[in-house]
Design a protein around this nucleic acid. Structure first.
Lengths: 245, 245
DNA sequence: GGCGTTTCTCAGCGAATTCACAGATTGCCG
DNA sequence: CGGCAATCTGTGAATTCGCTGAGAAACGCC
């Protein structure tokens, strides 16, 4: 079953029609708030916990369909939390948050089944995409939404990372891909440069605000070149993508 | 009967249409969790036990179609557990887990029937493949799914370990084979280096992340050499295999 | 024990990507 | 028609990323 989210998109629902539930575990409150907001915006129900104890308790009563888990918590270490979570919810997929340099040795082996991880600092777009992927693949949602976004004659496949316009394959860099994904997930909606920056770039990005303009320019060269433009500037407001027609 | 797993692949089912059941027996909880997760992801139903007593009890009521059994348990030794398991479930195939230096001849005798074994530390891809093989050969599943993966003109036989491209036989080392199998089980899907590392290398691998690049390079030399390439790099995202056409 | 094979580390190269900066361009206002 | 602010884009530099050769270490086989 699907329904319309506040954004007018189809969203994931559980078999009984209730919204998907996601548990966010991180000791930094700024992070849990950031994530909760972003994930709530997807139409999901969010609960957050700031330490391992809370996390296990929350898991027990909240029974989330997915968990976002920081691997370094103050009380229990991430592995211990994971192990207790698994005892409560053997099947729940987990998205691990980890420092970039801790990746190889600590996480290796953890993402056994359908799990996944992202390194800090992450971009919200990335976290949301991964959580969506986890839920989709876990089968908690009763429908397997297409992994392909379509706007007009433009398509973007989130699995294969392939992008086409009017049938022509288009090569994008990683950043361009994320930007386009964000736009395409919000067609006919004006997104401000600030929103885009928050969403597509890492949360600790300290650079010039005009990277967004720059990347919009790159995208236009690649997807709008010589065609009816799909990316539109709303001067003073932001950018919007919509079908050419 | 077959159906689509969450990943969209065909999966094994029992004759009555219920999912295949696998019992995992190991005293290290981190191992049972790792295995449970990976095997669950195949769409199978998993029960785990941490000692011989539990194992026998679980076998009795859970009636698994296959068992993964660590040969060194704290209470009963592996052989004793095995013999009691056999009394409960005479026909169930067993995958033994054993330390590398353990008496290989004793195990060799045990795997005389349809059984099999892997040494610790193992890679998940290997364990999953072996369990799948056991179940397939035991006839618990009502259909024998093809053991041959095909992507374009590239074929990989999981039983005979034969690999061909355009009819030409290709020799791969063990690691190369596992890497290619993982790629071919996920065609047209970008797999990150981290995912590949987790899945194809042993769970205790602590080495450099660029082994993945290295082995991709080896594979390319063997299967893409002088042909239309099938292995593609998505810079900043990972690798993907797809038909040349 | 010795030899060939396989796995893995290390380091350097080259290319792709990201980003800052600055000048050109555009749209909007009076 | 100016003038201002916002946006666009060319240039280039720094950095990251991926590829691969060389060789060391581990393994397996006789």
């Amino acid at each position: 079953m699907t329904t319309l989210s506040p954004q007018g998109r189809t969203e994931l629902l559980r078999p009984d029609g209730s919204p998907v539930r996601v548990l966010v575990v991180d000791d930094e409150q700024s992070i849990t708030e950031l994530l909760s907001m972003a994930l709530r915006y997807e139409g999901w129900q969010i609960r957050s916990a700031e330490n391992g104890q809370d996390a296990v308790r929350a898991a027990r009563e909240f029974r989330p369909d997915a968990v976002v888990l920081d691997m370094m918590l103050p009380d229990l270490d991430g592995l211990a939390v994971l192990s207790r979570l698994r005892r409560e919810l053997p099947d729940v997929p987990v998205l691990f948050l980890t420092a970039k340099d801790a990746v190889e040795d600590r996480i290796a082996g953890l993402t056994a089944g359908g799990d996944d991880y992202v390194t800090k600092p992450f971009s919200l777009e990335e976290v949301v995409a991964r959580v969506r992927g986890l839920i989709r693949r876990s089968g908690a949602a009763d429908r397997r939404p297409e992994s392909v976004l379509v706007v007009g004659d433009l398509t973007l496949d989130e699995d294969s990372h392939e992008v086409t316009r009017g049938g022509d394959s288009i090569h994008l860099t990683a950043t361009e891909f994320e930007l386009l994904r964000y736009l395409m997930r919000n067609p006919r909606r004006v997104l401000s440069k600030a929103q885009i920056l928050d969403r597509v770039w890492s949360y600790d990005f300290g650079g010039q605000a005009n990277v967004v303009e720059l990347y919009i320019s790159y995208l236009r060269r690649k997807i709008d070149a010589g065609r009816e433009p799909m990316i539109h500037t709303r001067r003073g407001a932001g950018y919007m993508i919509k079908p050419a027609a």
